[in-house]
Design a protein around this nucleic acid. Structure first.
Length: 428
DNA sequence: TCTGGGGTCCTAGGACCC
DNA sequence: TCTGGGGTCCTAGGACCC
């Protein structure tokens, strides 16, 4: 059996813990630049506020309805997520961190225990220790556990806990749920399945496996098998090292000149290489993309991206900025209003075991010492206390007007903790 | 005025190897 | 006259997740 523990309305719930005024009130949390609504409390959902709703279109209405609207406070959410994992680790063994607000638990070693009781213990403890409201679904496969969770969260009679322990129970539940609600069935497949008469999750469970494999590959087939209580989907913890990384932002104000764009791309590269070094990874390949607004008239729209292989896997900010700026030169076309850009790295590998080149022209030993020192300074005294001249003044490009305080963390604490673990060789 | 950011896996086809 | 049988790697595109 597997359990999935999922925090209800995660971002909105985090905001509530530290600001009692928000309790029992509708709360909405915004995306970067205060663009869209990406999280809602139950009260906000009841008002009909939709996921992804554009904020400026509804601002006045939200005010009238008394909705508390907040910018997203990722350091707070990440910290609360860590605390949840800590509490769970003290209670159970086999956990897989699936996302910032969801954890799977492999319950194979709990064969003779009362799983319902365990689920209630988990739920009560997370509420008592952290103030986080969660729902728990338990079933023979991860897909079914997600489905149990779906019911647990929506119908108050379950008190946020549901265990699928009998076949008939599972079939009844699958019959009543739309196929598009099943984990692994997105917009496209939902449409495809419905066009082929597969409407409920039970229809999908009973579908012809050859047909599913042909049109939805082994990925779709696995979902069908999981609905039939055959566990076959493996999930990797998000704490595992990433294979690719991206840093991208939408700009509050469009960018028109190459100089401004280069300043931004430099900053993105700085952030990305910090993340690389933190993960102890080096990249094989780097890429840059630029984009005008997707809502712009077609005539004025432009997208381009370019990637380049690195001679030696690297996480060296000095080196990667040079490549990123060359790529920017290659794809920048003047006359467009750029709204979004990003830097990507691919083929990450452990930076402790790298294959260097005989013909390398970069003094990596020396650069590493500089980078360690920079990381240490920025970790100790705040982000970008020491920065690269090409970054210029890049502070005017994002907006977070409704940010809550860093209740549980400060920048120094978050990154300072990392500094101790990861950069121990910097002279004091 | 104004529209998020970060990931993964799978497949098919082409190029190449012995 | 006639033309095998196995692989790998890479890339682009499409699907999905939170």
């Amino acid at each position: 059996m597997f359990a999935i523990v999922d925090i209800n309305n995660f971002y909105a719930s985090c905001e509530r813990i530290f600001d009692p005024k928000l309790r029992n009130k509708p709360v909405a949390v915004l995306s970067n630049n205060d663009g869209c609504i990406i999280a809602r409390s139950n009260e906000a959902k009841k008002l009909g506020i939709k996921m992804g709703q554009v904020f400026f279109e509804k601002e006045d209405w939200l005010k009238k309805q008394g909705v508390a609207v907040l910018s997203s406070n990722y350091p707070l959410y990440a910290d609360m997520s860590n605390r949840m994992v800590q509490v769970l680790r003290e209670m159970v063994d086999d956990i897989i961190i699936y996302s910032i607000d969801e954890v799977f638990i492999d319950l194979s070693s709990y064969k003779n225990k009362d799983l319902r009781l365990l689920a209630f213990e988990i739920k009560d403890k997370l509420l008592k220790y952290l103030g986080l409201p969660v729902s728990v679904g338990i079933a023979p496969t991860k897909t079914l556990a997600k489905t149990a969770n779906f019911y647990a969260k929506r119908y108050s009679k379950f008190k946020n806990v549901l265990v699928f322990d009998e076949e008939q129970k599972i079939k009844d539940a699958l019959k009543l749920i739309d196929v598009g609600e099943i984990w692994g069935i997105g917009r496209r497949f939902k449409k495809f399945l419905k066009a082929n008469g597969i409407k409920s999750a039970l229809d999908l469970r009973n579908a012809n496996e050859q047909f599913i494999k042909k049109h939805m590959s082994v990925v779709g087939l696995r979902t069908v098998k999981e609905l039939k209580e055959e566990s076959c989907i493996e999930v990797e913890s998000i704490r595992k090292d990433r294979k690719n990384m991206v840093h991208t932002r939408t700009f509050k104000h469009p960018i028109k000149t190459k100089e401004d764009l280069k300043a931004i791309i430099s900053t993105f590269t700085v952030r990305l290489t910090e993340k690389l070094r933190f993960q102890k990874s080096a990249a094989n390949m780097i890429g840059v993309f630029v984009e005008t607004s997707r809502f712009e008239n077609k005539k004025y729209r432009y997208y381009n991206s370019k990637t380049v292989n690195l001679p030696v896997p690297s996480n060296d900010t000095f080196e990667l900025i040079k490549y990123a700026l060359k790529l920017t030169d290659a794809i920048f076309v003047s006359g467009y209003k750029y709204k979004r850009a990003g830097v990507m790295v691919f083929g990450l590998q452990n930076s402790n075991h790298l294959q260097y080149s005989l013909f390398d022209t970069v003094n990596r030993y020396r650069n590493n010492k500089i980078l360690n020192t920079l990381d240490f300074l920025n970790a100790s005294y705040g982000r970008d206390v020491v920065k690269y001249a090409v970054q210029g003044d890049d502070t005017k490009n994002s907006v977070q007007e409704r940010l809550s305080p860093q209740y549980t963390t400060s920048w120094n604490q978050i990154i300072g903790a990392r500094a101790d673990e990861n950069f121990p060789h910097v002279p004091s």
